[in-house]
Structures are given as C-alpha cells and as structure tokens.
C-alpha cells in the first residue's frame, strides 16, 4: 500500500475498485505500518499486517486465515511479484480457506520470469536484450567479463543496478542475493526510450484491455514519475504474440526500451501484476482493477477502452495524515508467532 518513493500498486487498485463500487469492503494487507496507502482518504476499510513472503507459504496462509476470520473477504488480489511467485500454485489452499483468487499458472509464470524471458521472447519473435543467468557472483563476474562492462545486474524480482567494473558488480550482486536470493541476471544496457504496457489477459490468448505509455520523467530508481499514453501498433502486435504464447490470465505489465540503434522495441521484463500506475487509466475510463473483479466474479466484461494518446500523468506526492493509535492497532494485530518488524523497509513493486 506504499505510495511514496518507489510506489506499489495496492493503494491505486483499492482506489480504482472504490471508484467502481463506492461501498465495496476492501481489506488492505501491508508489511509495514508506515505504508501511506493505509491512511489515504477512500483507502481500505481495514488493514492487516502480513508476514513477508520470505517467511514462506505456510505462515503467509496462516495469517491470511486469521485476517479473513477477523474481517471476512471473498477475493484476494496479490499485487507484488514476490507474493505472486509464492502463491502461484496455491489456489487450492486458498480456496480451502474460502479465499477466491486468480493466479497465473506456475509454469507460465516461470516462462515469463526474468531468467527465462529470452527464451519466451525468441519464441514470440520479440527482441530482448542479451541476458545471462548466474547462480552466484562468481558466475555473474564471468558473464560480465565476456559481455564487457557496463552491464545491468538484476535480481529475480526487483533491483536493477548498472555496474561498471568487477568491484561494483560484486558489491551489487551480494546485496541483491542477500535481499532476493538467486539467480542474478547480467544484461546488456540499452540506450533508448522506455515504454510500459499494462493489460488484462483473458487466459485464452486474448486481451480484455491494454494501455501503453511512454515514460516522460524517470526517477533515479528507473520509475516513471510521468508518462504519456501512446498508440503504436508494434506494441499491440508484440503483446498479442506474448498473450498467444502464454495464454496469460490476469493483469500484467510489459516493459520495453525502444532501442535508439534500430528503433526496435526490446522486451525488458514481464511483471505478473498491475503496475503502480494502474490508477491512471482508471481515471480515463479504463478501470482495469474493476474489470478484473468482474472477471473474477464471472460476470461479462466489456473490452476496456484504450485511453487516448496524449493523455499523461505526473506522479504527485502529498502528505497523508494518521495517528499513532492507527499504527498501534496494526502492531497489536500482528501475530506473535511471526513477530515481524512493521517499521522496517517494505517490499518494492
């Protein structure tokens, strides 16, 4: 629910659902009592603290059951990569808890992961940057030596660090491994403009809707703090191929760089979730979270309209106010068995 620097999608998903159904009962799940979306006007009706996915599926499901017993809910929309990686394949366990969820098939999720992306891209005849997979820093050093510096060093879920020499790679690699574990990915850096495309896959190789953006303002963490809607048939065609190859079901985001060497789009990443900017198209009549809820409820979903090219967003930080009593309530609700530090750093989107 974090919406400050390096924002997460949860708060925008809640707002979009609230936009469609003002009386919806929304339960927010947080890892950190200072996640700003907890305190935003029109945000979740109630919030609960969760153990980090690194605690494992068992503690996570135990806590979900406790949350559902305290504040009953029907459907669960995980919003972070690490959650989805952990929960994919656990739909039956969630169903036994009475929790409805639509998650990507584990095999499809693996095909779309960073480590296997070049294989999928080749299958779809989509360009992607040269990428080598390393199990540890030593292997990453070998790959970088072969490719030549600088290279991007990436983790399995988050973090992308441009490193210029072996010392920089060793330091960045150790940090990424400590945070996220293996593998490390060594990727050629590309010069060009960044584009993102959000969509909803219908699970049959088709789309319920999509929206493509060009980043206008990029933060020092590579996040789009301002973007404009674009319409390029080449992006639509690439997306069509990825959908046809994966039969993706649910929200996703494709990240591209339009390579200035040849003006071709290169697929950088596939994120198996709504992006942090999901609230922007909702303001333009393309409410992806609401469509996804309709889809989960097995109601007929009309294809979402594509927002008009030229509409843009700028990320605008404001102060939300809270009371220490609210933080205390979140801390009190934390199960003793998990004993997580609610004030520590949260997971990034």
């Amino acid at each position: 629910m974090h919406r400050g620097d390096n924002p997460q999608p949860g708060a925008s998903i809640a707002a979009a659902i609230r936009q469609a159904w003002p009386d919806a009962f929304i339960v927010g799940l947080v890892y950190n009592a200072f996640e700003s979306g907890v305190y935003a006007a029109g945000g979740p009706d109630v919030c609960h603290a969760m153990p980090y996915p690194t605690a494992g599926l068992g503690p996570y499901l135990t806590r979900l059951a406790e949350v559902r017993a305290a504040t009953p809910f029907d459907w669960f929309i995980p919003t972070l990569d690490a959650e989805i990686a952990m929960l994919a394949g656990a739909s039956e366990e969630l169903a036994e808890l009475g929790i409805g969820v639509r998650l990507p098939d584990p095999a499809v999720l693996a095909r779309c992961g960073k480590a296997q992306l070049p294989v999928l891209a080749e299958h779809c005849e989509v360009a992607t940057p040269a990428t080598a997979v390393a199990r540890d820093v030593g292997e990453a050093l070998e790959h970088a030596e072969a490719a030549g510096y600088p290279v991007f060093l990436k983790g399995p879920f988050y973090d992308a660090v441009l490193v210029h020499n072996p010392a920089g790679l060793a330091a960045a690699g150790a940090a990424i491994l400590a945070d996220w574990g293996p593998p490390l990915l060594v990727q050629e850096p590309l010069l060009g403009t960044e584009f993102n495309l959000m969509g909803l896959g219908d699970g049959k190789g088709g789309l319920l809707g999509s929206c493509a953006l060009r980043k206008l303002i990029v933060s020092d963490k590579g996040k789009g703090n301002g973007s404009v809607v674009v319409r390029d048939l080449r992006l639509d065609e690439i997306t069509r191929r990825v959908m046809a190859a994966t039969h993706w079901s649910g929200p996703f985001e494709l990240e591209f760089i339009r390579d200035q060497r040849d003006d071709c789009y290169r697929l950088i990443e596939i994120n198996p979730r709504f992006p942090a900017w999901v609230g922007f198209p909702a303001q333009l009549g393309a409410n992806f979270p609401a469509a996804w809820v309709e889809w989960m409820l097995q109601r007929p979903v009309r294809p979402l309209p594509q927002p008009a090219p030229g509409r843009f967003f700028l990320r605008h930080q404001i102060e939300v106010s809270g009371d220490m009593g609210q933080i205390s309530a979140l801390l009190d609700a934390l199960p003793n068995s998990t004993n997580h530090d609610l004030t520590s750093n949260s997971i990034s989107a």
Binding site: T193, V228, V229, V230, R231, L233, R234, P309, G310
Partner: peptide, 27 residues
C-alpha cells in the same frame, strides 16, 4: 512490422493552433 504503422503516422499526428505537435506513436 513497421510498414502499417508508418503509413498512418503523419495523419495520426495531433496538432494544435500554437504549433504543438504530439506523435502518438512515439510519445
């Protein structure tokens, strides 16, 4: 993959009275 797009790029341009031009293809 580029031909179809290129044919329509000129007519897709968004113009206003002040000479501001937005290319919806590239942003």
């Amino acid at each position: 993959m580029t031909g179809e797009t290129d044919l329509t790029r000129l007519e897709d341009l968004m113009l206003n009275e002040r000479g501001f031009v937005f290319d919806p293809n590239t942003g």
